[in-house]
């Protein structure tokens, strides 16, 4: 019992200190609050704003936003070329973007952690092979890599997450490898090795907990990138297939009517920008609080 308490207490104290450090950064607080609001709005969408994003009303096509002449409160941000409600479509799109962003980052981080740990800890030939593959992935134009895989696999939500996740493992693997290389030489790891602790235990108990903060910072900032890429792929018609509403496709569809209906292209972009801004603010705050050395990421 005492052993368990002894083990847990310092970790809880560390977590507490870390949270306090994060809370001291205004950018982390503002970004975090914005992101929580976005996630909650996205999750509670049908309950709070009960309008079907797919239902068409051809009599109400191109209704401008409520504050413009001809606008109506029934369609706060107006309607598109098929009379579909823009706000409902934006809220529906937020689910896709957030889901793809977080799931792809989780997948990339998982692949990156495993490969980075193996590469950094074991070194030698396996490290060489993993890092050479990483070099190749780094030089492969990312957008072309993702669109050429999607061209092969076909468009679906699952494929999109898979492609974006697996294309982005390199950054994580390199960051983790760098941290492992320096940790490996530390006394506590050497001591553990000297008393005969198995490699797997050293990796999971001593190395992994120490690479969590760079990973958290990197992961947060990458969610923002993935969301931009997802909307870019949707814009090109290679994202989640219709009829699901995505921010990128709303932009692509709205572009045709840019001369008559400015709201079709303006609001989806603002939605992307606010989401990315909140994630970047949170990521910046986390970085400053957890690891000022990583300022350049």
């Amino acid at each position: 019992m005492t052993i368990i308490i002894d083990e847990i207490a310092p970790r809880l104290r560390l977590l507490n200190e870390t949270l306090r450090e994060v809370a001291r950064r205004p950018s982390a607080l503002v970004g975090g609050a914005m992101l929580i609001i976005i996630v909650l709005t996205s999750l509670s969408f049908p309950a709070v704003y009960n309008v079907n994003p797919l239902s068409q009303d051809l009599m109400a096509r191109f209704t401008p936003p409520a504050w413009q002449e001809g606008g109506t409160v029934a369609h706060l941000l107006g309607t598109d070329n098929l009379g579909r409600d823009i706000l409902a479509r934006l809220l529906h799109g937020s689910r896709i973007s957030l889901l793809v962003g977080f799931a792809a980052v989780a997948l990339a981080a998982l692949a990156g952690i495993i490969l980075g740990l193996i590469s950094g800890y074991y070194g030698g030939r396996i490290d060489n092979i993993i890092m050479r593959i990483a070099d190749i992935f780094m030089a492969y134009p990312f957008m072309l890599l993702t669109i050429s895989i999607i061209a092969v696999l076909g468009t679906s939500l699952f494929n999109l997450i898979l492609v974006l996740g697996l294309s982005d493992w390199v950054t994580y693997a390199r960051t983790i490898r760098g941290s492992v290389l320096s940790l490996k030489e530390k006394e506590f790891v050497e001591a553990s090795r000297a008393i005969g602790t198995p490699h797997r235990t050293i990796i999971t108990r001593h190395i992994l907990p120490n690479v969590i903060s760079p990973l958290l910072i990197l992961g947060t900032l990458r969610v923002a990138n993935i969301i931009i890429w997802e909307s870019g792929l949707s814009f090109l018609g290679m994202g989640v297939p219709p009829p699901m509403a995505t921010w990128g496709r709303m932009l692509a569809d709205g572009r045709i009517y840019i001369t008559d209906a400015w709201w079709l292209v303006t609001f989806p972009g603002i939605a992307i920008m606010i989401t990315i801004l909140s994630i970047n603010l949170l990521g910046d705050g986390l970085r400053d609080a957890l690891d000022p050395r990583l300022r350049n990421i």
């Binding site: 572009r255 292209v265 920008m273």
Partner: peptide, 15 residues
Amino acid sequence: ALFGLSMPHFWLGIM
């Protein structure tokens, strides 16, 4: 700069 980083370039193009 943070705003600039958060803006997708294709949307900026459309704007």
